[in-house]
Each structure stands twice: as structure tokens, then as C-alpha cells.
């Protein structure tokens, strides 16, 4: 049984490493068995520390230095057996896999930092998250259409007179089922808007006369802010008479149609 004699003893707490050729040869014989080269320095250091500790223990028991070194080496056993055990413990497959995962972690951490601070996505992510949380659900009375990836809602807004025309609002909501299209605005500008007198134009130069429309057109009045899955938009219609209803269809001639009804009150 080893005696401590009240002196602190711990790994690597012994005196400075000594140059012992026999120890070094033994270590090299052990390492020759270990196929995973990157672990060689650490294994060598660990073996030398063991030898130093054993030697220091023996010296404390009264052995002289040379004898303590020999006995310490003898206690370590066969280099071949130790090497074989070390090779199993430091198998190249696990060794290289471990190294690969370390590099992958570093690469991904670097990518995360670059993405966050160089590509400057953080403000957009914060804005989207805030918008998602602040999104107000459409009223129960809103018309809606259930699509494969989203639900589209539409409801009538205010109607008022301005500059000899009638202005009317359409309120639109889109709720996506997953965030894969986050950051992409719903295609409301591709929707077709039609009332009892026909299709309304978008507020842009018209192909026929290269002029902006004076009436019977729609424009986006307010959009967003969009969240990860939720979007909100207000369209403003400019008409000649108060609207009774407007049908929204998409795409073009209508795979689906939503009807916004103001009734006779408008």
C-alpha cells in the first residue's frame, strides 16, 4: 500500500520531467502500436506523467533515483500490451470522426457568426418575430379560403369620398402553415379584383395608353410588417360609385375566389 506521508501528490505535480532514454524508448514502443497519430503527443505526455508519479512515489519510499526509474518502468508492464490497449482506446475511426465533428462545429459556429453579423440578418429576424407576435387575427366575419400551404382572409374596410371618387378599403390577411416562405410577401399584387362593372386595374401605367388610370383601380395602401408566417395588407380601391362587393380571384381567372361584401350600406 502506498504511503502519502502527508505530502500533496497529484498527477503532473512532480518535479520537472527527466530525460530517461529507457522511458522514451518504452513510450515510443507503445506509440508504435497506436494508429491514430494526432493522439500521440497526448498519450506520450500521459505515459510520462504516470512514470514520473510512480518514480516520485518510490523516491519518497527511500528508493534512489535510478532504481526508482527502473522500478517505475517495470511496473508499467509490456509496451506491446499497453500499446495494443491504447490503440483500442484511441481507435482511428473514432479519432478521425471526433476530429471531423470538431472542425464541423467550428465551421458552423463561424458560419453563424458571419451570418448574424456580416449578412446582417438579425434586425430582420427580430422584426419578423415582433410582427409575428403582434399580428392581429382577422375578424370572424372575414371571408376566407383554405389553401394547401396557407389561409387567405379578406374583409371589407372603410368607404369614403375623396376628390370626386369613392375610396374603399379591402383588408387582407395571409397565414402560412409553415415558415418556409418567411420574408416573401404573399402575391396579392397578382390577385384579380373585380366588381359588378368588371375588372379593376392596378395603379400603374396602362398598356393601352401609357397613362395612369384615373378611376376604377386598386393600389396597396399599407403592407405589413410581415412575420414568419403571418402577413397583413390593406388595399385601397378608387371607384366611381360605392362598392357593393368585390371578388378577389387567383391566379388570373381564378382557381379560387373570395368575395368581399359591403352590402347596401356602402
Amino acid at each position: 500500500m502506498k504511503k502519502n506521508f502527508g505530502i500533496f501528490k497529484g498527477k503532473n505535480k512532480t518535479s520537472a520531467p527527466r530525460e530517461n532514454q529507457a522511458w522514451r524508448n518504452w513510450c515510443e514502443a507503445v506509440l508504435a502500436q497506436v494508429r491514430f497519430q494526432p493522439d500521440h503527443p497526448a498519450i506520450r505526455q500521459e505515459l510520462m506523467a504516470h512514470l514520473e508519479d510512480s518514480c516520485a512515489d518510490l523516491e519518497r519510499l527511500g528508493y534512489d533515483r535510478d532504481l526508482a526509474e527502473q522500478r517505475a518502468l517495470g511496473a508499467m508492464g509490456s509496451a506491446s500490451l499497453v500499446g495494443s490497449a491504447m490503440d483500442r482506446a484511441h481507435h482511428p475511426l473514432w479519432g478521425w470522426l471526433w476530429q471531423a465533428t470538431r472542425i464541423l462545429v467550428l465551421a458552423l459556429a463561424a458560419a453563424a457568426v458571419v451570418t448574424a453579423f456580416v449578412v446582417e440578418v438579425m434586425p430582420e429576424m427580430v422584426r419578423q418575430t415582433v410582427s409575428e407576435l403582434q399580428w392581429e387575427a382577422p375578424p370572424e366575419a372575414a371571408e376566407r379560403v383554405e389553401l394547401k400551404h396557407a389561409t387567405v382572409y379578406a374583409a371589407p374596410g372603410e368607404v369614403w369620398k375623396e376628390d370626386g371618387h369613392v375610396k374603399a378599403e379591402i383588408l387582407l390577411w395571409v397565414r402560412q402553415r409553415d415558415p418556409l416562405a418567411a420574408g416573401s410577401w404573399p402575391p396579392t399584387s397578382w390577385f384579380t379584383y373585380r366588381d359588378s362593372q368588371g375588372e379593376l386595374s392596378a395603379y400603374r401605367r396602362q398598356a393601352e395608353d401609357d397613362a395612369m388610370p384615373e378611376s376604377r383601380y386598386w393600389e396597396c395602401k399599407w403592407a405589413g410588417p410581415g412575420g414568419w408566417t403571418r402577413f397583413r395588407e390593406t388595399l385601397e380601391l378608387t371607384l366611381d360609385a360605392p362598392p357593393e362587393w368585390v371578388e378577389i380571384s387567383y391566379p388570373a381567372d381564378g382557381e379560387w375566389t373570395l368575395r368581399v361584401d359591403w352590402g347596401s350600406e356602402a
Partner: peptide, 15 residues
Amino acid sequence: VCIVLGLVVYTMLGF
């Protein structure tokens, strides 16, 4: 850790 970091990067890039 790779899976978590990968998801973070993928989310930050907007899927």
C-alpha cells in the same frame, strides 16, 4: 451541437 448550429444558420438565412 452541429445540428443546433446548422438549424440556427439555416433559420438566419431564411430557410
